[in-house]
Simulated scan of single mutants.
Amino acid sequence: MAAEPRPGRLDPTGLALLLATVVGWGLNWPAMKLLLPEVPPFSIRGISATVGVLLLAAMALRRGEALAVPARVFPRLALASALNVTAWMGLASFALLWLGAGEATIVCYTVPLWATFFAYALLGERITALRLLALAMGLVGLSVLVLGNGVQAGVEKLPGVALALAAAILFSLGTVVTKRWPVPMPPAALVAWQTGLGCFPLLIGALVFDRWAVEEVSARSWLLLLYGGAVPLGLSYLAWFAALKRLPASAAAAGTLLTPVVGVVTAAIFLGEPLGAREVLALSLTIGGVVLAIRG
């Protein structure tokens, strides 16, 4: 069991695990954007999820975690899977058809802003003036992101923004629902089940709707698909749970704000996406709003 960090000092191992988590998650956004010309969205998530589920299940067994799901908690598990995985992964993937990887990352990581209202409705947490200010900052940041290059350019991005916002809102609902009605299962087993159940509809979607030439997929794309399953869906989640054991929840939550930063910067490096005043201002406003939401 990890030792408790001394007051005023964050556990170095916990910080390293948190950094590994946000880097793994952040890099997945440009990776998915690179995949889209060769692999359709449903298939991207379906193939990566299969890799991730197998890896997580193997790790759960190695750690001695039971994979059996108690019948009484299965409805909670199914609901959490639909909100935290099906909606999040499916909608966010399709948003990339209209948005750059950096733009999609910024919109999707507004989750804490929307969680404020669900926490009020389901947990009785009050909505403070600070949280209202956070929401206003986040909305201004999104406006800068969408309209900063002109109204016409913004209108063209609206389908992607709508999908990314829906992903963020439904994921925030899933987060609050899980807090209200937790699923009592070990970490690796829980993530394996959530990912498997949540991605099953996406696999069905791939079989029904996706048409792509498997033999024409490049070696780079196959490696990116493996990365999407092994790292963001597998190792990063395990690192996240390990970090939560060593760090205060507020510090861990604030640390995840590095994820959109990693996504935006790496999208500029690997995809040549713009990283100018508009992107920096939008990122600063939305992250500032999220920080206030977490503190408020």
Score class of each variant (00 low, 15 high):
A3V: 09
R6E: 15
D11K: 02
T13C: 13
G14I: 02
L18P: 00
L18I: 04
A20E: 08
V22G: 09
W25Y: 13
W29A: 12
W29C: 08
M32R: 09
P37Y: 08
E38F: 00
V39C: 01
I47P: 00
V51Q: 02
L54Y: 08
L55E: 02
L56K: 01
M59I: 15
A60L: 01
L61S: 11
R62K: 15
E65G: 04
E65D: 13
A66D: 14
L67S: 03
L67K: 02
A68E: 12
V69Q: 01
A71G: 10
V73A: 05
F74E: 10
A80R: 00
S81D: 03
A82C: 05
L83R: 05
V85K: 09
A87R: 00
A87P: 03
M89D: 03
L91W: 00
L91S: 05
S93N: 12
W98I: 09
L99F: 07
A101F: 07
G102P: 05
A104S: 15
Y109H: 15
P112W: 05
L113R: 05
L113I: 15
A115Y: 12
A115M: 12
A115I: 07
T116Q: 13
A119Q: 08
A119P: 02
A129E: 11
L130S: 14
L133R: 11
L133V: 13
A134I: 12
L135H: 06
L135N: 04
V144G: 11
L145A: 10
V151D: 15
V151M: 14
Q152Y: 11
G154R: 01
G154I: 07
V155M: 14
K157Y: 11
L158K: 08
V161M: 02
A164Q: 02
L165S: 13
L165D: 08
L165C: 12
A168C: 11
I169Y: 03
I169L: 11
L170S: 10
S172Q: 06
L173E: 01
V177C: 12
P182E: 07
P184Q: 04
M185K: 03
L190F: 15
A192T: 10
G196E: 04
G198I: 00
G198P: 00
C199E: 05
L202V: 02
I204R: 07
I204N: 07
G205M: 01
A206E: 03
A206Q: 01
L207F: 10
R211F: 04
V214F: 15
V217H: 06
S218K: 05
L226H: 07
G228P: 01
G229F: 00
P232M: 04
G234A: 06
Y237T: 02
R246Y: 06
P248Y: 13
A251N: 04
A252T: 07
T256W: 07
T259S: 13
V261D: 02
V264T: 04
V265T: 09
T266L: 14
G272S: 13
G276Q: 05
A277R: 11
E279I: 10
L283I: 09
V290N: 11
A293G: 12
A293M: 12
G296H: 10
